Amino acid sequence: MLGLADGDASAYVIADGLAPQARLAIYRNTANSTLLTALRLTYPAVRALVGDEFFEGAARLFIEQCPPSSAHLDSYGDRFADFLARMPEAASLVYLPDTARLEWAVNEALHAADATPLDLRRLEQLDEAAMQAVRFLPSPAIRMMESAFPIDAIWHAVLSKDDSALAGIDLAADPVCLSIHRGPSGVEVNRMTKGQYRFTAALLAGRPLHDALADAPDAETSIWLAHLLVSGCFVDIRLSNEASSRTAER
């Protein structure tokens, strides 16, 4: 019914003492209020950066132009960052769309399905050849992103209400590569080097370990791989020539 104009939907509404148009208005206001609350919860840093009035106006316009396609509110708002990027009124805040993208990644990691981290003892069972061919299946609660702006610092400063830290952020600083991962203590946002980002992206895309290492000859890569493993970023393994990890366990 959200996608119908009042004139189209009112014919299907029983008046019962209240005009169909009035019933639809109540429904629409309730639905829009629920969606607005969902956006507020997902994008607290964006809201703080632009102020309540601007955020509510932008959110209501977004709701009008991009109604939900399902009743699952946790999945609503994935296009909000792109919407902000197209808003002339937000053009001066060049970092705003990427800040929204970071908050969406945090939201996805937060609400991702639970998964048991990879049992590292399974790697001990692989011989050298199998270890080179192994592929890692990523946790559903890990995301990665790049930005031309220090959006992680902006995000932390805004949410902690640290005005001095926010004022000290250099928007011309080097681009950042970020990992967003939900671990036992919650969602963490951490920086990576460009090399670590490329290596992690290759593993998350399912490339064999041998190929990922070949493109990342840095001596620190093995240390970074150990960090990924102990952090619970992977939940299963496959061998490049196998359809199931059961073969790897033999």
Rank of each mutant, 00 (worst) to 15 (best):
G3S: 09
D8L: 11
D8C: 05
S10P: 01
Y12A: 10
V13L: 09
I14Q: 12
D16E: 15
T30P: 00
T30I: 09
S33E: 09
L36E: 05
T37Y: 00
L41A: 14
T42W: 03
T42H: 10
P44H: 04
A45M: 00
V50A: 01
G51T: 06
F55G: 03
G57H: 04
A59T: 02
R60H: 05
L61E: 12
Q65W: 01
Q65H: 07
P68Q: 04
S69H: 10
S70W: 03
H72E: 06
L73S: 07
S75Q: 09
S75P: 00
D78L: 06
R79F: 07
F80N: 01
F80K: 04
F83Q: 10
R86C: 14
S92D: 11
D98V: 07
T99K: 00
W104M: 08
W104C: 04
V106C: 12
E108L: 08
E108T: 05
A112L: 03
A115H: 01
L120Y: 03
Q125L: 14
L126G: 06
D127G: 10
E128Y: 10
A129Q: 10
A130Q: 15
M131P: 02
Q132V: 00
A141Q: 09
I142D: 04
I142G: 03
R143V: 04
M144N: 04
E146K: 10
A148F: 10
F149K: 05
F149D: 04
F149H: 14
I151F: 08
H156R: 15
A157R: 11
V158L: 13
L159W: 12
D163A: 14
S164Y: 06
L166E: 06
G168C: 04
G168M: 05
A173L: 10
V176R: 08
I180P: 00
H181Q: 13
N190V: 12
N190P: 00
R191M: 02
M192I: 00
K194M: 08
G195D: 11
Y197Q: 11
L204M: 13
A205D: 13
G206T: 05
G206N: 07
P208I: 01
D211H: 09
L213N: 08
A214I: 11
D215R: 11
D215F: 06
A216P: 02
A216G: 03
P217Q: 07
T221H: 06
A226Y: 12
L228I: 00
S231M: 05
S231W: 01
D236R: 05
D236M: 09
I237N: 12
E242R: 14
A243G: 14
S244R: 09
T247N: 13
A248F: 09
